[in-house]
């Protein structure tokens, strides 16, 4: 049985597909989108995050850490990330929830009971389980194993993906995936590269591929003024040529993830500006006029 690296299980997830869902977050992502709101999902390795604003300098973590990564001076709490082996003993002892440990190696057997525990809610609301991340298809074998087990249980499955994975990854999960939540961020390769650090031809080709294989697809367009707002019409025109799309959602960018970057010791790349209601409305109507789908939100 394969193992996977995950960083969270969110119950009562209601923005990751239809109905009440449980979302399993895979750790590791090939893209580095400037607006990423789950930076803890980028690295494949477990990480310790330290939220300074919650810390009351009690010293409990220093006692718990065998590597001495946490120390206290007059200036306060110093977390030396270089010494940290990412084992996370400090998380459990912190009385103020200032330390979060992201990353857990699990097998399908271990995680499945948690994914199934809200089954009654899925049935009563038309929900199910969503695999997200990070990029869940970077661990395609593990994802496929979980998805197939869920399908055996009769659970509705969704795969939330950036599309930046080898086509074979899709082949592995296609038989067990009821709907793909597929991100399209830009059509112009230069814009895409500036936003995500990568070229987009693989993403667009994979989208056409799964469409040709008959997949149901919900498109998600993160809308980030100053980055991809000029791309909206091009995206809509492109989508109009792709079959199997059931919904298109414009996801307005929010900048609420800033504290996570600091806590993880990462450079904060988040754009400052969030879209105004007017910008959002005009983006939605641009999509609507170019891609006449009925379920736009």
């Amino acid at each position: 049985m394969s193992q996977g690296m995950i960083f969270d299980v969110k119950r009562f997830a209601i923005h990751d597909g239809d109905g009440i869902r449980t979302t399993l977050f895979f750790k590791g992502c090939p893209l580095s989108c400037v607006w990423c709101h789950n930076p803890e999902g980028i690295s494949m390795k477990p990480e310790v995050a330290y939220y300074r604003h919650k810390c009351k300098c009690c010293g409990a973590c220093a006692k718990a850490c065998p590597e001495g990564a946490h120390s206290f001076t007059e200036g306060g709490h110093i977390f030396d990330r270089d010494k940290c082996l990412g084992r996370g003993e400090c998380e459990a002892v912190c009385p103020n929830s200032a330390i979060k440990y992201y990353g857990r190696q699990v097998t399908a057997d271990e995680i499945l009971p948690e994914l199934l525990s809200d089954r009654a809610f899925y049935e009563n609301s038309g929900g199910g389980v969503t695999l997200s991340g990070g990029e869940c298809l970077m661990q395609a074998d593990f994802a496929a194993e979980i998805l197939s087990r869920l399908k055996e249980e009769g659970i509705h499955t969704a795969v939330d993906t950036s599309g930046y994975v080898p086509r074979e990854a899709f082949d592995k999960v296609l038989p067990y995936t009821d709907v793909f939540l597929y991100d399209v961020k830009a059509i112009d390769p230069a814009v895409h590269k500036r936003c995500t650090g990568r070229d987009n031809s693989l993403i667009l080709n994979n989208l056409k591929y799964i469409s040709s294989r008959g997949a149901a697809i919900e498109i998600r367009i993160p809308f980030v003024p100053g980055y991809n707002d000029s791309e909206i019409t091009a995206i809509a025109e492109f989508l109009d040529t792709v079959g199997g799309i059931t919904k298109i959602k414009v996801l307005p960018y929010h900048n609420l993830a800033a504290s996570k970057y600091e806590a993880l010791g990462m450079k904060n790349t988040l754009p400052e500006r969030v879209p105004t209601d007017e910008e959002l409305k005009s983006a939605i109507s641009a999509i609507r006029s170019a891609a006449p789908l009925s379920h736009l939100r």
């Binding site: 009440i20 009654a120 809610f121 009563n124 038309g126």
Partner: peptide, 22 residues
Amino acid sequence: SSVKGDEGSEIMYGLLKTYLDG
């Protein structure tokens, strides 16, 4: 924000129904 629109009503209904079924 979690119960916006018709989809949100279905979610509330799902919670309620599961509670009652249980």
